[in-house]
């Protein structure tokens, strides 16, 4: 800003450009540090998986042997398969059910809703081991009718129990933001309520559903205590296996290798998805520039 006799500072303008520049640098550093903080443990796991030695405190030589080993670790592979099976079923069901439950809860009067939302917090709040234990006791009552109930079924039910609340918690604030007139408008146009729900409300709360789904998957994939009590028939997931091995024996570094692979594949998947989207957008842009600007 150039200076003049009657400077704009006299009118209350203050020059923040230096401050702004410092803030820009500070911002970048902070972002890098936070991302590093989030990922430091993942980086260390990756290093451990590339270490030739099984010793976790000393990096001897670079080696990919633990990656090749994953397939030979039968118990580990079984645990991984089980984890994926349970978590994918639980996540899909929890996202789906949680969204509709949230809509249902939102339709209640406020007093009633507050009460149920309080209860909804209990599965998140309760110590895992307490939840796991009480669920097991409840499912045991069903054993009278279905003697072989424990296994995949109870495991998925237990996972639903603590993932649905997360979905509801993330969908609910979005629901409150949606314009109540949206629904009315749709219905005035002659759309039936449930159709309007799917066509109008769901798109409006998409972001909440998506973050709810991410949370559900995250909680489900990593659960130990609740899974331990509610599994059966040898249906152990990865967390149960890791806990059992870590206590008395040495974990094979193949676990670290698997963990690293999971992270890397997801990252790659995201990149490829982004790339494809951009290509699609590029083609669309030619005819549809206007829409893009608005969004």
């Amino acid at each position: 800003m150039e200076k003049e006799h009657a400077s704009i500072q006299d009118y209350g303008y203050r020059d923040f450009s230096t401050l702004n520049r410092i803030y820009q640098v500070f911002k970048k550093v902070l972002i890098v540090l936070i991302v590093l903080g989030l990922y430091i443990s993942i980086i260390v796991i990756a290093i451990q998986s590339l270490n030739e030695s099984r010793n976790l405190s000393d990096f001897t030589r670079l080696s990919f042997q633990w990656y090749g080993n994953i397939l030979q670790e039968e118990e580990l592979m079984q645990a991984i398969r089980n984890t994926f099976l349970v978590s994918s079923i639980a996540t899909v069901l929890a996202t789906f059910l949680g969204t509709f439950f949230a809509i249902g809860l939102y339709a209640l009067s406020k007093k009633v809703r507050v009460f149920w939302m309080l209860l909804n917090n209990v599965p998140i709040l309760n110590a895992d081991i307490v939840t796991g234990f009480s669920l097991m006791l409840m499912f045991r009552l069903l054993m009278v009718i279905f003697p072989n109930i424990f296994g995949l079924f109870t495991l998925v039910m237990a996972h639903l129990f603590f993932t649905i609340p997360y979905v509801i918690l993330s969908v609910m604030p979005k629901l409150k933001e949606t314009d109540p007139n949206l629904m009315d408008a749709a219905m005035d146009l002659g759309v039936r309520p449930y159709k309007a729900l799917v066509k109008v409300v769901i798109p409006a709360i998409k972001a909440g559903i998506f973050s709810g789904m991410l949370l559900a998957l995250t909680m489900s994939i990593d659960d130990f205590a609740i899974s331990y009590f509610n599994t059966g028939a040898g249906f152990d997931n990865l967390s149960i296996w890791i806990y059992a091995v870590i206590g008395r024996r040495n974990l094979t570094p193949s676990v670290y290798a698997f963990s690293t692979l999971l992270t890397i594949f997801t990252l790659f998947g995201l990149l490829i998805y982004q790339f494809l989207q951009r290509q699609k957008k590029g083609r669309k842009n030619e005819k549809n520039n206007f829409n893009d600007i608005r969004s």
């Binding site: 989030l38 990922y39 430091i40 443990s41 993942i42 260390v44 796991i45 451990q48 976790l56 405190s57 991410l214 949370l215 998957l217 995250t218 994939i221 990593d222 130990f224 990865l238 967390s239 890791i242 806990y243 870590i246 676990v255 670290y256 963990s259 999971l262 992270t263 997801t266 990252l267 995201l270």
Partner: peptide, 20 residues
Amino acid sequence: TFVILPMWSNLILRTESLAN
């Protein structure tokens, strides 16, 4: 997804590597 991705690795593995 990038932000939450670290949480998909087992909590114990992550915490032990931090402790390490």
